[in-house]
Design a protein around this nucleic acid. Structure first.
Lengths: 240, 240
DNA sequence: TGTCAAAACGAACGTTCGTGCTATATTAGG
DNA sequence: CCTAATATAGCACGAACGTTCGTTTTGACA
């Protein structure tokens, strides 16, 4: 974990010896950018050093020198993916006002994050979680931690919506967060495996109905009108 | 696919030349049994021939001869897992009467199938789908096909419940099937990644509420009473 | 009991994996 | 200009991968 902290360490670093060679840091960043893309498609284990090196036209050893081991590379990749996720999902969703609007925004932006293929292989963490849930180690721990953060964020948003009187007190935040997350990941699964774009509309509808059911009269106007999907609305066609 | 069919072929085979050496078939079965366990934990790619051979105390080459290639081994493993799934989930659920009772049974038995750890790594197909959704090939196609079967089964059960007047006509079978499946896979995800057994109760509750909302007065008595979990009821303790 | 195909084996192939060691460009401070 | 630190390259390693080959064991039937 100390290694992780060192790897993640960014922002206000000491420029004395660390950033003297800023070139190295830029290379490292470029490596991680490619790593995140590969890993989201082929998995963090399928992310091979040789593959990554040839993708960037550099030598294995030159690339390898930036990370002490493959596990460090994986951890750094996870961290880079987290940064992307925060930038692409959490950030935009937080432009909505605290409460039900933000809760809805989190769900909505998340679906867009998968549909827009921010990562080529769908949600990076859904893939990483499935890959590592059976192998103990630092990578698994970090991935689990990050997904716990996300779930906690959903839960907190539910609570805030309740505090604002937009969601009924009878709703269990943890239960609601679980269900919302499940619907979203269900859409990710259907899209990745079947290429089913309808799944986004289904997840959206499911989330919306679920929220509307526990919304108070104060909260209801904060949700989009029913019966109409935002991006692509599937008209008829519910042929078995 | 022909290879798969041949691989799966069982039951009433011609004993003339095929079953003369029945020993080979038994060995093959033992291999697949172990393969399914390993693959559900380490993935179908992590399922290595050397690892599998040493697990069974046989030579790599002897084992390999049963399948012509690694891909054939993976396909046979998927087929074996499907057989287990049918035996452990579909079969038991079909003891319930057609209609809402069976639909509920499918969901309930599925959750038990994950909780009982029929496969050590959780739902075999959820894991395989996540692993292969980004790599074209026969394995991916077969896994997608099987999961489509499952979703179609849920959808058909919804329709049958509607036909029996136990679920309202206003419910979209495909939408409902999507949501039920998502909740179930959400429980699998939470259990595998966080070891969270509460997830089963949450998924159960979510499914139940979702079904109860579209159930007709005729259908309602077919669902378990609310507020009480069947297998293991988590009493207190919802500590974050 | 001798035959013969199925089944299992042992050894090796060529490749790729992660990981070290050593050397060479590149660059900033003295 | 020299020097020290950094970044990248070159090369080789041991292990594991899937796969092939030729051989040996085995067991049912003539």
């Amino acid at each position: 974990m100390t290694a992780v902290n060192e790897a993640v360490q960014e922002g206000g670093g000491r420029p004395s010896a660390r950033a003297r060679r800023a070139h190295g840091e830029r290379t490292r960043q470029a490596i991680l950018e490619a790593a995140v893309d590969i890993a989201s498609e082929e998995g963090l284990e399928g992310l091979t050093i040789g593959r990554l090196a040839s993708e960037l036209s550099m030598s294995k050893s030159g690339l390898f020198a930036h990370f002490g081991s493959k596990e460090e590379l994986q951890l750094a990749t996870v961290e880079a993916a987290r940064a992307v996720f925060v930038r692409e999902v959490v950030g935009p969703a937080f432009e909505a006002e605290e409460g039900l609007a933000r809760l809805w925004s989190l769900c909505d932006v998340w679906l867009a994050y998968v549909r827009r293929e921010v990562f080529r292989g769908g949600c990076f963490f859904a893939a990483a979680a499935a890959e590592f849930d059976g192998r103990p180690g630092a990578v698994r721990d970090r991935v689990a931690e990050i997904m716990k953060e996300w779930l906690a964020l959903l839960r907190r948003s539910v609570s805030e919506a309740q505090a604002a009187g937009q969601l009924g007190r009878e709703a269990d935040p943890a239960q609601l967060a679980f269900e919302l997350n499940a619907l979203e990941m269900g859409a990710n699964w259907a899209f990745q495996l079947h290429g089913d774009r309808q799944a986004f509309a289904r997840a959206r509808l499911g989330v919306l109905e679920r929220l509307r059911r526990v919304a108070t009269p104060d909260g209801l106007p904060l949700l989009p009108a029913p019966g109409r999907a935002k991006g692509r609305a599937p008209r008829g066609g519910s042929k078995t």
